[in-house]
Amino acid sequence: MLLRKPDLACQQAVELVTDYLDGNLSRSDRRRFERHLSVCPHCTEYLAQIRAIVELAGRAEPDDLTPQAQDEITDLFRRWQADPEQRS
């Protein structure tokens, strides 16, 4: 007889979220996790929140360089080019 692992408690489920999203759970643990989600709206929401955070964190603020930073960097490049010693 195959023993089915006991159902997950919510407290265990939230600890699996990162591994679940990265595809690091074994097949049986993934099934167990998904089975838990199918009956637990709160853990489903927890997972959705973590997903939302990952997605929102990736919305980079467009950060333009200041003209001063631009000048400094151009200067850095020209000094590097002018000095063959710096080229290794």
Binding site: A9, C10, Q11, Q12, C40, H42, C43, E45, Y46, A48, Q49, R51, A52, E55, L56
Partner: peptide, 18 residues
């Protein structure tokens, strides 16, 4: 969580607001 590990103070739901 309660002693069996079930939520007693579950997260407030906001993910659908994104």
């Amino acid at each position: 969580f309660d002693s069996s590990g079930q939520w007693i103070a579950p997260p407030q739901h906001w993910s659908d607001r994104v």
